[in-house]
Nucleic acid binder design. Structure first.
Length: 786
DNA sequence: GGATAAATGGTTTTT
DNA sequence: CCATTTATCC
């Protein structure tokens, strides 16, 4: 489904007289530094703005737009301005409006690559054999489609999972390769069947009148390449092009931009090669590195004055990133003086790390380290991988520290929302076969694989959509009993909803409620006893509420992206927990960077898969992390960490060695005080400094010693060995009458033994047969602390 | 077809 | 360890 903003009509040009605006005063220029000003005023020709972290990149970009408009060089509809996220696009719109007052209306061509491509593609769909009302499939639809193809091709979907094929195809699309253009070197992909499946997939999409995210770019590039008249039209139309986050563009986006800028070359790209962290998703740092070759005579402007961070933070970040090769090179500087050094601290294990950060956060409210008191809203914890968040959530829940998680599953990706949306899609367009497949047996209607196959056959034989296929099947009495009744009811429902959806008198909100009610979908979750069910019902209500902002279902479906932006701004101050990737572009007064251990960060997998390239991207991630901090940056690592239930020890991240010592304040691990709860709770500040001054604490010998100590003290042993003992006893010693504990069913008594299977009467969950090793003697379970 | 037990596998994420 | 998928039994 479409997940972004298609609101402004193509023709929504704002009729503004160029001359009327020319010669207006430009007060907005006053607040710029010389480099920013140069970037704003160099309106003609190619410009590359190399904007380091916190150097006022968005300010320069938006001022440039304002300047284009204010001088009369361009009208709002003549500026093509692309971003990667809806959030960035929205922010730019707001800031341009702010600069120019209320006098300029929205810019129709300021948006994400994808949103802009949707508009273009709707206009020229027929040039790539599509109808202009094509559907946009999201990853989930895409994978289900690929799964069908894989099964049809008789490929073992265990060994060759659809998700992998989706990745392969996405990668090819990111490189702008059509099936016939995939290079021979890639022929081995997906068991040598990748290219053929890709071709088949594209064909299938065409039949469905659908596109995936990659197609949006790819189709438009194809249209431009094959229809020069169309390309020329847009070259005339978009007289000025601006690109944000240029380091994140992939090949398809790069081609798209080059085609459009090919005539006038009025293209201004803003980016920071040091913040390229999406290589694994197809982004090519090379695009920014070779800008000057692509656009000869390009003006390269460096924004290097940083307005965000203290000198220490900046120096630490620069020290780390300096190890990367092939940079365009920038030297960030700041007028700010003083400030706290970057703090570095090691911990025994991940739990202690979480405990320590929790205590620091609590202390933050009273003002620490010469800094004014901070609100939790000013603090963020940035992790490499989302699973690292759990330790913090656990800890914060027990001490009652409010936190918010950014990222996580998006609203519109949730199961219940996608189901509900599928119903809405069918109401709007009964041709939407993928939506039909999704909901035909959700809630359960007794229409299993066999029944669904019959529907497919009937539809294909008659060349109609699945809803009509179902109709034919029913008329031919090809289905009997309960299934037939249920299917007839569903088809009748879809017909009814479709009529209602086309009736302008019908309230779409009531219709949505009616659909969820009549389809039995609401009831399905009401009857569900799993703990998630109430939340899902809540989400469905939220979904219906979101409809209020739209005129009809159709409009809503095209705007789904807007729902995902419902970041509820609540009054309570909370610390933010997110991944480093999600943090790009944000800033916080205080930032914690936990988990700096080799293998975790830099991630082992990144290094295994792409070697040095991967390591450098990880290093850029470290750079992004440090530069998010304004006043206080705290890096930490743990010597031991429980990963997948196993205790593992790790060495501090190699990035830690790259931090320039003179900008780092090494805090002694609380464990060295004798450990224990609360050792860090009342840390005497002077004491910390005293220990910190022992230089060897942070150089490798120091860490080695600390680790050695960790081993002799056996920090991780008690828990580990206890678990092993439990398991061994569990297998051998059960008999009738024993009290046992199962992690899912709780306590119970053994009532029978058959080999390694036990029959257990659980206190709460009834009688079950369980393999012995899933169960633990109740007495041992009681022993486990906490 | 559906509930439930067992096995599996496990970065980063936008559109 | 834990969430999700797969296999099995009714």
């Amino acid at each position: 489904m479409s997940t972004f903003d298609e609101s402004e009509a193509f023709e929504a040009a704002v009729p503004l007289s160029r001359r009327a605006m020319a010669g207006r005063p430009a007060p907005y220029l006053d607040g710029l530094n010389p480099a920013q000003r140069e970037a704003v005023e160099a309106l003609e020709g190619p410009v590359l703005m190399l904007a380091g972290a916190g150097t006022g990149k968005t300010k320069a970009l938006t001022t440039r737009i304002a300047h284009l408009l204010n001088t009369g060089a361009a009208r709002p509809n003549e500026i093509l301005s692309v971003t990667f996220t809806n959030k960035a696009a929205r922010e730019m719109k707001e800031r341009v409006a702010g600069l120019l007052g209320e006098s300029v209306e929205g810019m129709p061509w300021l948006g994400t690559f994808h949103a802009i491509c949707v508009k273009l593609l709707r206009r020229h769909a027929e040039l790539v054999d599509l109808k202009s009302n094509f559907t946009i499939l999201d990853t989930d639809d895409q994978i289900r489609l690929l799964k069908q193809l894989i099964i049809a091709a008789n490929i073992d979907e265990k060994r060759w999972p659809p998700r992998l094929l989706a990745n392969v195809i996405d990668n090819w699309k990111n490189r702008a390769w059509l099936p016939e253009n995939v290079p021979a070197a890639e022929a081995g992909a997906f068991d040598h069947k990748g290219v053929a499946l890709y071709a088949e997939y594209q064909q299938r999409l065409r039949t469905l009148n659908a596109v995936d995210f990659g197609d949006l770019l790819l189709h438009v590039v194809t249209i431009f390449q094959r229809n020069d008249d169309v390309l020329q039209q847009y070259r005339r139309w978009f007289r000025f092009i601006l690109v944000d986050e240029y380091q994140d563009t992939n090949v398809a986006q790069y081609l798209w931009l080059r085609l459009l800028a090919g005539g006038h070359q009025n293209i201004c790209c803003v980016g920071d090669d040091d913040q390229s962290i999406y290589g694994w998703r197809g982004a090519e740092v090379g695009n920014i590195l070779r800008f000057e070759k692509d656009f000869p005579g390009a003006k390269v402007i460096r924004l290097e004055q940083n307005y965000r961070s203290t000198a220490h933070i900046l120096a630490a970040a620069s020290g780390v990133i300096a190890s990367n090769k092939g940079r365009l090179g920038k030297t960030l500087w700041t007028e700010a003086e003083g400030g706290e050094k970057v703090r570095l601290i090691g911990h025994w294990d991940g739990e202690e790390e979480a405990r320590w950060i929790g205590e620091e956060l609590e202390a933050m409210g009273h003002g620490t380290r010469g800094l004014p008191p901070m609100s939790l809203n000013d603090c963020a914890i940035l992790v490499r991988a989302s699973h690292q968040m759990r330790a913090f959530e656990d800890r914060f829940l027990t001490i009652g520290l409010p936190y918010r998680v950014v990222g996580g599953p998006r609203f519109y990706e949730r199961l219940e929302i996608r189901d509900a949306m599928a119903y809405f899609r069918l109401a709007v367009s009964p041709d939407d076969d993928l939506a039909f497949e999704r909901i035909v047996n959700t809630p359960k209607r007794g229409l299993g694989d066999k029944a669904q196959q019959k529907i497919q056959v009937a539809a294909r034989a008659n060349g109609v959509n699945l809803v009509d296929g179902a109709r034919v099947l029913l008329a031919a009495k090809g289905l009997t009993g309960k299934g037939a009744t249920a299917l007839a009811q569903l088809v009748a429902g879809i017909d009814r909803w479709h009529v209602a959806a086309r009736n302008p008198e019908q309230s779409h909100i009531e219709l949505a409620e009616q659909i969820l009610e009549e389809s039995g979908y609401t009831e399905h979750w009401q009857n569900d006893k799993t703990p998630e069910a109430p939340g899902r019902l809540e989400n469905l209500k939220e979904l219906v509420k979101a409809l209020e902002n739209f005129d009809n279902l159709q409009g809503f479906l095209e705007h789904v992206a807007l729902i995902m932006d419902n970041e509820t701004e609540d009054a309570e101050a909370k610390v933010t927990l997110m991944t480093l990737h999600a943090a790009k572009g944000l800033e916080f007064p205080a930032v914690f960077l936990p988990g700096w251990e080799d293998g975790l960060f830099p991630s082992q997998r990144a290094m295994d898969e792409t070697g040095l390239k991967g390591l450098e991207e990880e290093r850029r991630l470290a750079y992004v992390g440090i530069t998010r901090a304004e006043a206080l940056c705290t890096i930490s690592f743990a010597a031991n960490r429980r990963i997948y239930g196993q205790w593992q020890s790790a060495l501090p991240s190699r990035f830690i060695d790259e931090l320039p010592e003179e900008h780092v304040d090494v805090l002694t691990p609380p464990g060295l005080y004798g450990g224990g709860y609360g050792a860090a709770a009342q840390p005497a500040r002077s004491d910390l400094h005293e220990k910190a001054s022992r230089a060897d604490v942070y150089n490798s010998p120091g860490w080695k010693r600390m680790q050695a100590r960790g081993e002799t003290r056996g920090i991780s042993q008690p828990r580990e060995s206890r678990n092993v003992v439990i398991d061994l006893e569990a297998v051998s010693s059960f008999g009738e009458g024993d009290r046992v504990f199962h992690k899912k069913f709780g306590y119970g008594a053994v009532v029978g033994v058959e080999g390694d299977k036990l029959e257990i009467a659980f206190d709460k969950a009834g009688v079950k047969k369980i393999v012995a090793h899933f169960v633990v003697p109740a007495a041992s379970a009681d022993d486990v602390p906490f």
